[in-house]
Computed example of a mutant assay.
Amino acid sequence: MEPFQLQEQPIPHLVIKSWQKLVPGLNVGFSTKKGGVSKGFYATMNLALHVNDQEEDVISNRKMLTNALGFSFDAWTSAEQVHGNHIEIISKEKRGKGRLSREDAIQDTDGMVTNEPNILLTSFYADCVPLFFLDPVKKVIGLAHAGWKGTQLKIAEKMIETFVFAFGSNREDIHVAIGPSIGQCCYEVDGKVIQPIQSTFSFIPEDIIFDKNNGHYDLDLKKLNQQILIHAGILPNHIEVSSYCTSCDHHLFFSHRKDKGKTGRMAAWIGLRKDES
Rank of each mutant, 00 (worst) to 15 (best):
246 T>V: 02
160 I>L: 03
216 H>W: 06
68 A>G: 13
201 F>Q: 05
215 G>S: 09
17 K>L: 07
266 M>N: 07
261 G>C: 08
170 N>V: 04
242 S>G: 10
99 R>D: 05
52 N>T: 13
31 S>R: 13
168 G>R: 08
160 I>S: 03
156 A>V: 03
210 F>M: 13
100 L>G: 08
29 G>V: 01
166 A>S: 14
110 D>M: 14
277 S>E: 04
161 E>Y: 03
215 G>L: 10
124 F>I: 04
114 T>S: 11
26 L>K: 14
65 L>P: 06
61 N>M: 08
37 V>T: 12
252 L>Q: 10
202 S>P: 00
63 K>I: 14
19 W>Y: 11
208 I>E: 03
199 S>E: 14
216 H>T: 13
169 S>V: 09
274 K>W: 05
109 T>R: 07
121 L>T: 07
60 S>M: 14
84 G>C: 10
224 L>N: 11
72 S>T: 08
8 E>M: 09
4 F>V: 01
40 G>F: 06
47 L>C: 11
276 E>G: 00
38 S>L: 05
117 P>N: 13
126 A>L: 09
216 H>L: 08
96 G>M: 05
48 A>M: 04
187 Y>D: 13
119 I>T: 04
71 F>A: 10
78 S>V: 15
220 D>P: 00
83 H>I: 12
135 D>L: 06
141 I>W: 07
26 L>F: 13
197 I>P: 11
47 L>F: 14
16 I>R: 01
71 F>V: 06
249 D>N: 13
159 M>R: 10
13 H>L: 07
268 A>L: 05
193 V>D: 07
59 I>V: 10
192 K>G: 11
79 A>P: 05
270 I>E: 08
131 L>W: 00
24 P>Y: 10
198 Q>H: 11
119 I>A: 02
100 L>M: 14
239 I>Y: 02
251 H>Q: 13
230 I>W: 02
62 R>P: 09
242 S>D: 04
43 A>Q: 15
24 P>V: 10
30 F>Q: 03
81 Q>M: 15
196 P>D: 07
106 I>R: 02
60 S>R: 15
53 D>V: 09
162 T>G: 00
65 L>V: 14
272 L>Q: 00
220 D>V: 00
102 R>P: 05
74 D>E: 12
160 I>W: 05
182 I>V: 15
228 I>V: 15
236 P>L: 02
39 K>T: 12
7 Q>V: 11
73 F>Q: 09
163 F>I: 00
100 L>S: 11
182 I>D: 11
6 L>H: 06
147 G>L: 09
94 K>L: 15
129 V>W: 04
107 Q>D: 03
263 T>P: 01
228 I>F: 09
165 F>C: 06
59 I>Q: 01
249 D>M: 02
9 Q>T: 10
223 K>Q: 07
5 Q>G: 00
